[in-house]
Write a protein that binds this DNA or RNA. Structure first.
Lengths: 173, 173
DNA sequence: TAGACCTGCTTCGACTTCGAAGCAACTAGG
DNA sequence: CCTAGTTGCTTCGAAGTCGAAGCAGGTCTA
């Protein structure tokens, strides 16, 4: 008798819990719907779509591989794989970076932009219907204003397993 | 000359765009950090963690497979796979549902709850540090209040490729 | 009760994803 | 110029994910 509790009881802020759960659930559902639309309308996955979008929105139409991987939050090897597929499909081109021989620059092609043109309307429709339908203009702005600092904070935070686990306020610089 | 533009120019609400991008980026980064912490602290993936959490928070400690798959937004086959792993590890048990012979009820074990107990502190730390650090209490509440209706709307929406693509207001019932 | 249909779960094959290891090219210090 | 260490990308094997197909168990209608 009197076993220690399997999950030590601790009070979790229910407001935070609700925000966290809703965030995970909303993006899971949204991503799922987006994947489906992209697949139907253009044979794309969300990752490949993000690659094309980032390149398309870049002034030069291109990026270094590593920068792109960080931007869309995917592993380097994962991006290599997807870039290979996109290249085989003629949607991007890869070339050695001019300044650094080991670097690879990935560039969107006209075919890539054309595919985006075919896929974007449906994409906007899905996002509009699912994410923004229940949100007023002010709500959308509020959401953006809440998430922007969070994103900046996460980007600034030690990218991977640095610190953590030693949250004690030590005197290290 | 005068080729048609590859991507037809259309005005996208920059506020919506910012909210959408920030949402995707924030959850991608958050999920990445969470996966890492769960793996280090308990050899769990996020999906397996979600399974255990849902079961743990259920009054009976159990769920039907299909309901659980819908709840955590994963395919049925995917859940079957993960449930197999969790069962092999002794963290859950599967049994035929009492009312419906083809249904399978999955139940968390004491070992499953114990593992949660070991993993949850680190989990809360990561979520707190990354997601909520830049947010005030009021911000967290605002975020939850914004996302709750979105979640409800998404849950209510036709789960998969229904309607869409015929957004034109036709006279069909 | 029979037949047709539907549902819940699992199996299967294809694809995606990751981290570790490998390789080429930069950089620093002598 | 060497050597050592670092950085950028790819290859490789292991694991996770999905949808389609399969199968057993329900449900409906006559």
């Amino acid at each position: 008798m009197s076993d220690p509790p399997l999950v030590p009881p601790h009070e979790v802020d229910p407001v935070r819990l609700g925000a966290y759960f809703a965030l995970i659930e909303v993006t899971s559902l949204l991503r799922h719907a987006i994947e489906q639309q992209l697949h139907e309308d253009g044979g794309l996955t969300f990752v490949r779509f993000q690659v094309l979008m980032r390149l398309h929105r870049s002034p030069t139409g291109s990026h270094r591989m590593t920068d792109l991987a960080d931007a869309i939050v995917v592993s380097r090897s994962g991006l290599t794989y997807q870039a290979g597929l996109l290249e085989k499909a003629g949607l991007v081109a890869r070339s050695p970076s001019p300044d650094d021989e080991r670097g690879v620059t990935i560039t969107i092609t006209d075919a890539g932009r054309a595919l985006l043109g075919r896929v974007l309307p449906g994409h906007e429709e899905v996002v509009g219907d699912l994410l923004f339908e229940p949100l007023s203009r002010a709500d959308a702005r509020a959401l953006a204003d809440l998430l922007a600092p969070v994103r900046d904070h996460m980007r600034a935070a030690p990218p991977r397993s640095a610190s953590r686990r030693r949250a004690r306020p030590t005197a290290e610089g």
